[in-house]
Amino acid sequence: MTSLPLISFDAVSVDFAGRTALRDVSIVLHQRRIGVIGSNGSGKSTFARMLNGLVSATSGTVRVHDLDAARQAKQLSRKVGFVFSNPDAQIVMPTVAEDVAFSLRGRGLSRTEVDDRVASTLQTYGMSDHADAPAHSLSGGQKQLLALCAILIGRPDLVVADEPTALLDAANTRRIGNHLLDDLEQQLVLVTHDLRLAARCDVVLRFDEGRLVESGDPTSVIERYEREHA
């Protein structure tokens, strides 16, 4: 395995308003595709949000690709692209092209550079025809593709997707899943309830009640998870 940058959690706990969301999590990850499963409220979303500094640890340290998540949150949010479940919540600008271009704000790029990168990113994901369309006029699947374009244009080193297919139909789930699992070159952390997507990862972590209860080969982790919840 080529040496991908590391994600490491060292004795990490997170408390929210008197409730423990994550309890003493320690793990080192170097795989390309990392699946995260667990029931609602198990702590997997909190785990994902720590990877780009949206949530910080109450105790313990998180390191992502040589950055300390607590102290270097600003650099981290540039290196990490985050896909949420609800595309409506991540689209901030009126048209498709404007929203994708928004990700390049404040990077000191010229107007033409921005336009070129927007055009080529939209091209890659088959969204060129919609460049000037109002973002809200897209279908759910197209909106999630737009969200993906908006993230990948920033050339992140790590893509974190928190249940990116939760609101999509079967065809769009497959499409977004393929983009994330097959087409990406970057490291991917995929939080999902779709066990078929999780099975295609290189490693799967399972969370339960804020604890990391298991990690390893996807087939065996998923099998035990299904047996316990049968």
Binding site: F16, L54, V55, A73, R78, R105
Partner: peptide, 21 residues
């Protein structure tokens, strides 16, 4: 204006809007 991380304290709270209160 840019300046990531400025609302981290608030966002921590916002990360779980349902669970918090």
């Amino acid at each position: 204006s840019a300046g990531a991380g400025s609302s981290r304290a608030a966002s921590t709270d916002a990360a779980r809007p349902d669970a918090a209160r």
